[in-house]
């Protein structure tokens, strides 16, 4: 990138949320490294909190959801930047709250009255974005293509979108498309991987909506259905763009293997990879830094499903 340009046009405030920094830090690592490589600048949002989660906390108390989310958006406003997030849940919260406040001036006034007491003021000048939206819309496939150094010749990918990156569609940037979006598949295929179709591809992973914390077995039953459909088409890996979906497919795969041992036949063992980890290896970044290689002896941490079969593919094909 040309360092002489005064202002980087791809400068954003990175909203981390909870699952990425506190359970899947390899995703944080890969987001930071890939965006740096792509010439974007991601600033931290010091003091950001939980978004708050749209399934749990919004279900308990909508007013809390609005004010805490508005505070998080204000932190980015104070930096004069659009907040971007790598989590569908955080995106659902930040984008929906931003949208609602843009369309309801009374609500905006109410929220500002609360924020006043901590010395903050919400304007709504900066729309929250999902990092996939930055990759696909702000940067574009052609721009990213130039950074791809290695391409897979044989990698079958089951793409999982998750729900809140596409729905509710009127509050999303995909021109109303929610039944059959293709943007994530197109990003995946930049790496030479093949996105393969599978039954009920756009179905929910089961984690959201406070369901995982309410009745884990029901969440796992969703995941089991998706895993069966993904195994049926012989996908090598699952690619996702949400750490809560990642958790549900990764840790959830262990849970499915246990809860449904009698009905699934062979236990599932499908690596779950985040979109910037896949892009990163294809861009020639060190798989160590992308969190694809385990360099520690810490027990009981993510990823719960080994990435080894994916690493083998990288070694064979790059």
């Amino acid at each position: 990138m040309n360092n002489l340009t005064s202002e980087n046009k791809w400068k954003y405030a990175l909203f981390l949320g909870c699952v990425i920094p506190n359970r899947y830090p390899m995703i944080e690592r890969s987001i930071r490294d890939v965006f740096d490589e792509l010439g974007a600048e991601l600033l931290d949002l010091p003091g950001a909190s939980c978004c708050p989660a749209p399934g749990v906390f919004r279900s308990f108390h909508i007013p809390t959801w609005y004010v805490i989310a508005a505070r998080n958006i204000v932190l980015a406003e104070e930096l004069n930047l659009n907040p971007i997030t790598g989590c569908n849940g955080c995106y659902g919260t930040l984008k929906d709250v931003w949208y609602d406040l843009e369309h309801d001036s009374e609500l905006k006034k109410k929220v500002n009255k609360e924020l006043q007491k901590i010395g903050k003021n919400y304007t709504g000048k900066y729309e929250p974005k999902h990092l996939v939206q930055v990759l696909y819309i702000d940067m574009g496939l052609n721009y990213i293509r130039d950074f791809i150094k290695y391409q897979f010749t044989d990698l079958k990918v089951a793409v999982h979108y998750g729900c809140h990156i596409v729905k509710p569609s009127k509050k999303r940037p995909w021109n109303g498309e929610y039944e059959n979006p293709i943007f994530l598949d197109e990003i995946v295929e930049l790496t030479g991987a093949k996105s393969i179709n599978y039954k009920d591809k756009f179905m929910c992973c089961g984690a959201g909506g406070a369901l995982r914390s309410a009745v884990n077995e029901v969440a796992a039953d969703f995941t089991k259905e998706k895993l069966i459909n993904i195994r049926d088409v012989e996908a090598d890996i699952i690619i996702n763009c949400c750490p809560f979906c990642e958790l549900q497919f990764d840790l959830g795969q262990i849970e499915v293997n246990k809860i449904f041992a009698n009905e699934i036949g062979k236990p599932f063992n499908i690596p779950v990879i985040y979109i910037t980890q896949l892009l990163g290896v294809s861009m020639g970044l060190d798989p160590n830094r992308l969190g694809l290689i385990r360099n520690h002896n810490i027990k009981g941490v993510s990823p719960f499903i080994s990435h080894d079969s994916f690493l083998k593919k990288i070694k064979e094909q790059f």
Binding site: P21, A48, R289
Partner: peptide, 22 residues
Amino acid sequence: KKWRALRKSYKLTSLPPTVHSY
């Protein structure tokens, strides 16, 4: 503790720059 150690293994600050640090 293990999650903070995991963060460090990826060369991230042991606590994220969120409410955890402020």
